[in-house]
Design a protein around this nucleic acid. Structure first.
Lengths: 195, 195
DNA sequence: TGTACATCAGTGAACGCGCGTTCACTGATGTAC
DNA sequence: TGTACATCAGTGAACGCGCGTTCACTGATGTAC
């Protein structure tokens, strides 16, 4: 069994991470397998040792966010999912709807960068996307100030504000308007999650 | 000057409308010019008599919504932009965040169907997209109950909720969750635009 | 311990299909006379 | 009014490029003896 399993896994992980980043930046269809493999430091042909096809890579790239780049992101935001505290919903909203997150095209949440792509992708990818939303809603709901009514509904609406505000801000060419949308969404989401 | 100008314009309009519908359904890259022309009742080659290239068609398709399919949509919702009344913001939110709008893939607002595509398109298309948002915000702001504070900010946040709620609902494979998101966004947007 | 072997990740050339775009041609119809 | 002409929207074949995928081959390295 030449090439240790860990070597194999490391290559695979490099491919997924390169793909996640490139898909975020350019979209599913505008990224070639050649580009991904090059970014991962490998060559074209090897791709099919690791994945069935390009769609399978997309699904992996989306689902990798939750425990990969997303975990770093949460850490930066001061959020610890194994020890949630009532102020962390606000930290989540602050970080998600921040200018920094808006500008971080490579590292931002796939729900912002890829919703239309995912809507047309295969069921696995859609599941992965859904898991991102479910996790976000769970976090907002669980880490909301204690005495909130309609916790679940408010968490869902906050998530819609977070994603909607950022999707719009990312797409608008007038960056001043984009900032206004982002900050209005941030303000409204803050209202929603406070008691 | 054979073929009257009106004949030419009619063909062009048919192409744009076919494109708008197909792009909404399948996304910019998944629609071929062949498909568009066939849907418009014409043949492939004629396309370039009307448009410089596929990107130019995309931009037209997005901008056509505001006064084309979108006008019908507003009429169905009981909204008359030349005679706005204070209850029409609520009508807008009701119609935008309705199950009917969610299911109407062909006819729905391009901000829901195509945000990622537009984020990667040329400046003309992004301008067209921005005009849709600006119009929506203007409508919400202008038709809000009279005695509202923070009208502009609330209109921006409502628009983010409308778009975000629908983008998520369209992408989630679990239709029950999709409904929950849609209705939570609707509830929150209603709060935002009432005094 | 050292060496031959087997495995399989990685390589890069080649294939083949699809699609945006071009082009020479057609023919419907408005206009000049 | 009728007819020849000119224009240009429309046609459909062809081009050419890009990219997902395949494939025969290479070579690094773990294992058996």
């Amino acid at each position: 069994m030449p090439y240790s399993a860990s070597h194999r896994d490391a290559s695979r992980a490099k491919i997924v991470e390169a793909a996640r980043m490139l898909f975020n930046k350019y979209g599913f269809q505008n990224v070639t397998i050649d580009q991904v493999m090059q970014e991962a430091g490998l060559t074209r042909g090897g791709f099919y040792n690791h994945f069935k096809n390009k769609e399978a890579l997309f699904s992996e790239a989306v689902s990798s966010f939750l425990m990969g780049r997303g975990a770093e992101w949460r850490q930066d935001a001061g959020i610890d999912i194994s020890n949630l505290k009532p102020e962390m919903a606000q930290q989540m909203v602050d970080a998600y709807l921040s200018s920094k997150h808006l500008g971080d095209i490579d590292g931002q949440c796939p729900m912002i960068a890829l919703p239309s792509d995912v809507a047309r992708a295969d069921p696995e990818t859609q599941e992965a996307f859904q898991n991102l939303l479910t996790a976000m809603v769970w976090l907002l709901e669980t880490a909301m100030p204690i005495n909130q009514a309609n916790r679940h509904q408010n968490a869902l609406a906050s998530a819609a504000l977070c994603v909607g505000g950022m999707v719009l801000a990312r797409t608008l060419p007038d960056s001043e308007l984009a900032e206004d949308v982002r900050s209005a969404a941030h303000h409204a989401a803050t209202q929603l999650i406070s008691a």
